[in-house]
């Protein structure tokens, strides 16, 4: 993956496939680190799947749900000296509080740090392809916070789908304006 934002897109798709109603993508930056947390209220993983989830060979054979996405994220994090942690509660054991949180820590000044890339494009793509579920996105850069919550947009939009072209363009422009800090 050339950009971390592509890893994030890939991992967030796991949440979509897990039947999540709300997927949160939270990026926190400090001077030295970037922490990416992707959490959902989907079905969660059983302990057995969770144990194998970072093993590309084991997981691709036992389930199509996981594959190479997490190993690639793990590689990207570990090559900077960071790590990936996954916490998951399967619906069979936690009927009221199931879901998965994948947290990746990167040391962003490391020479092998993958650039974050076009994170706005990742958020736009997720909404375009999954208009019936909600996404909360927050990118905290210390001196600036960029955020978007589709639940708030839905309140304004009513029955108009989130992936209506004009809405998608609004979301894209809104995010890019937040990043570029353009004034009104």
């Amino acid at each position: 993956m050339k950009e971390l934002s592509l890893n994030i897109l890939d991992i967030a798709e796991n949440s979509v496939r897990a039947g999540a109603n709300l997927t949160k993508i939270i990026i926190d930056e400090t001077d030295d680190t970037i922490t990416v947390a992707i959490s959902d209220d989907g079905c969660g993983m059983t302990e057995e799947i969770l144990r194998n989830v970072t093993d590309p060979f084991c997981t691709t054979r036992t389930t199509r749900k996981v594959g190479l996405g997490i190993p690639l994220l793990k590689l990207a994090a570990e090559q900077t000296g960071g790590r990936v942690d996954i916490v998951s509660r399967h619906e069979s054991q936690y009927p009221d509080s199931h879901g998965t949180t994948t947290t990746a820590l990167f040391y962003k000044n490391h020479i092998d740090m993958t650039p974050l890339g076009d994170i706005a494009a990742t958020v736009v793509t997720l909404i375009q392809c999954n208009p019936h579920i909600d996404f909360l996105f927050t990118h905290n850069m210390g001196d600036k916070v960029v955020s978007l919550d589709t639940r708030e947009l839905r309140e304004v939009l009513g029955d108009v789908p989130l992936n209506t072209v004009d809405v998608i363009m609004w979301i894209k422009d809104n995010l890019n304006e937040q990043y570029n800090g353009r004034a009104e």
Binding site: M1, L6, L9, D10, E13, G67, L68, G69, L72, A121, T122, V124, T125, Q128, C129, T164, V165, I168, M169
Partner: peptide, 27 residues
């Protein structure tokens, strides 16, 4: 848009389709 597609460059392809379909007034 699985891992293979994303890694190969599916995201800009999808975004281009969305934009061009809008531009061509085919939405």
């Amino acid at each position: 848009m699985a891992t293979c597609g994303i890694a190969a460059g599916a995201r800009p392809v999808l975004n281009t389709f969305v934009e061009e379909v809008a531009k061509a007034d085919l939405s």
